[in-house]
């Protein structure tokens, strides 16, 4: 295999691995998030003592889930978009357009990664409002999400699958 091909395969493999990892982490976090909300009610009624950490924990996990799974959308192409114009374009125009859009997504990921890292370092020492956990645990979600966007965007650009999915599959359609 040529070095270029093996490089592409490596990025693709990394993207796939990170995607699987993201799924496992997100499913676990969702479980804990729902559980802490339910515990909150149980404690307030069943035990007559309100929990002070449940809401903040649930919200912390929520941010992580959104930013993690959001990055997954770059790989799986489930983010919503208008395909009106796209569908009418001739094939030879679609490819360069997708390339440009893919590069923009990649650039966005890079900015989120770097500005997110700045955000984490600039706010070191700050604590959360209720529990007082170190705020970098929360802020870290931004650069991590940015980094994942970069890997997935790069992989899909390299293997030519950027924006493959025109309309998201049925089971993923729903935004309320």
């Amino acid at each position: 295999m040529s070095p270029l091909r093996s490089g592409i395969a490596a990025v693709d493999g990394l993207s796939g691995l990170l995607a699987r990892l993201t799924v496992v982490v997100a499913v676990t976090m969702t479980g804990v998030m729902v559980a802490s909300l339910v515990l909150q009610i149980v404690f307030r009624y069943g035990l007559g003592q309100a929990l002070t950490w449940s809401e903040e924990l649930a919200l912390f996990l929520f941010t992580w889930i959104v930013l993690l799974v959001g990055s997954l959308g770059v790989r799986e192409g489930f983010h919503v978009r208008l395909t009106l114009l796209h569908d009418y374009l001739p094939g030879w125009l679609r490819l360069p357009l997708d390339l440009v859009l893919g590069l923009l997504v990649l650039g966005f990921g890079l900015v989120l990664l770097t500005s997110g890292s700045d955000y984490v370092t600039e706010t070191l020492g700050q604590v959360s409002a209720a529990v007082g956990y170190p705020i970098e645990a929360l802020h870290l979600a931004a650069p991590v999400s940015g980094g994942l966007v970069v890997v997935h965007a790069l992989a899909s650009l390299l293997n030519g699958s950027a924006f493959r999915t025109a309309v998201p599959p049925v089971e993923e359609l729903s935004d309320g």
């Binding site: 307030r44 007559g48 003592q49 309100a50 002070t52 903040e56 409002a129 209720a130 529990v131 007082g132």
Partner: peptide, 25 residues
Amino acid sequence: KFRVMQNPVFISMFSALGGNAVPMA
């Protein structure tokens, strides 16, 4: 059951008074 600001001092204050502090958005 008092809703308190999400702040450790307020939560501790209500606990010290024997109240039921509920942090709520």
